[in-house]
């Protein structure tokens, strides 16, 4: 390593340490997301249902209400029909029950909503059993917590990948654009500083920051949620490195000739927001139409997220994520070539 490269990398770390917003985005944001989302979807052993009930006079109404309120999984909400309809619209209840004068029950729910279907069956079974229906086959539920199957296990690699993408794009690219605008890049050009030392300093700086991000996100996942990497640690780390290098190259390509930070910001949002949705960071991509699945797999963020999930959740190793690694490397090389061609000091 040349003297210049050492100084430049030291400088990159210095910029990071002394820029509170960089610190915030890199280390704090993923933690906040993790705690909010991880917390929201892992409370309680199984989900509860909000059920609306229109109270009625008479013995029939009392028995139904008794059956429902004796099951702790139902959160019963009393109110008249208008009130219930409003709640249903807001999503405050999954379903509401209207008893009729001739002792029948009407279930009102949103037919489009998969959860509501499920709640209807569940509510109905509870009531029928309470009224004496006997079940000929004896069955018992045995809930188990399979490692790697919880939402937080799915979310964490996604958050990690997304955080590597955004910090590379905002960190490296923004630095580049700012320094170009302030004529600092041209100032460097009048010194014997070599171009590849400059580029390398960005890459090495990113990888060091990546180690920090990994440490923070993984140890928080480990401590708070019992997250585990089922597969190879080395492969996990290697994939993160290739991903970060590739994203850094994309950042350099994106900021190759811009001088306006606001324009760069828009460009980065244009790149990251669709990818964030399409790559399945928060939710599984299986909701997207079948024909799009193959295309979505070609996105760089998808490659990283999928690879990380394969390793962390399915216990895979190097050989199983070669495709994702190759794709990321390809993006990195293409972006780098593009940047070299278009770069303005």
């Amino acid at each position: 390593m040349s003297k210049a490269l050492v100084e430049m990398v030291k400088g990159r770390m210095r910029e990071f340490r002394r820029e509170p917003s960089a610190f915030f985005f890199v280390l704090f944001m993923p933690l906040v997301w993790m705690l909010i989302l991880g917390g929201a979807f892992s409370g309680g052993s199984h989900p509860r249902a909000a059920v609306g009930w229109i109270p009625s006079e008479g013995e029939f109404g009392a028995r139904v209400q008794q059956a429902l309120s004796s099951n702790p999984d139902f959160m019963l909400q009393r109110g008249d029909a208008a009130q219930q309809r409003k709640n249903l619209g807001k999503g405050a209840v999954d379903l509401f029950i209207e008893p009729t004068a001739d002792s029948r029950l009407l279930y009102h729910y949103d037919a489009q909503h998969p959860d509501a279907q499920h709640v209807r069956r569940w509510v109905d079974e509870t009531i029928q059993t309470a009224f004496g229906r006997s079940n000929p086959v004896i069955s018992e539920a045995r809930p188990e917590s399979v490692p790697g199957s919880r939402y937080i296990d799915f979310l964490l690699p996604g958050l990690l990948a997304f955080s590597l993408l955004t910090t590379s794009l905002f960190g490296t690219g923004m630095t580049l654009v700012l320094h170009r605008r302030e004529n600092l890049l041209r100032r460097f050009l009048t010194t014997p500083l070599r171009t590849h030392d400059y580029i390398l300093s960005h890459l090495i700086g990113r990888l060091l920051i990546m180690v920090l991000e990994l440490a923070v996100i993984l140890s928080a996942g480990f401590l708070f949620f019992g997250f585990r990497i089922q597969g190879s640690w080395v492969a996990f780390l290697g994939l993160c490195m290739i991903g970060t290098a590739s994203f850094t190259a994309i950042a350099i390509a994106a900021g190759a000739r811009m001088t306006q930070t606001s324009a760069y910001n828009s460009l980065v949002n244009l790149l990251t927001l669709p990818m964030m949705l399409l790559s399945g960071i928060w939710f599984s991509r299986s909701h997207f139409p079948a024909w799009s699945q193959d295309l979505l797999q070609l996105l760089p963020l998808t490659a990283l997220v999928d690879g990380l999930r394969h390793i962390a959740l399915e216990g895979e190793g190097w050989r199983d994520v070669q495709g994702q690694m190759g794709l990321l490397a390809l993006y990195g090389i293409l972006a780098f070539l593009w940047a070299r061609k278009r770069f303005r000091w």
């Binding site: 302030e182 004529n183 041209r186 010194t191």
Partner: peptide
């Protein structure tokens, strides 16, 4: 040795 017009350096250094 060069000093450019309107060139700034790293603020945080």
């Amino acid at each position: 040795g060069v000093q450019l017009q309107e060139s700034t350096l790293y603020k945080k250094y």
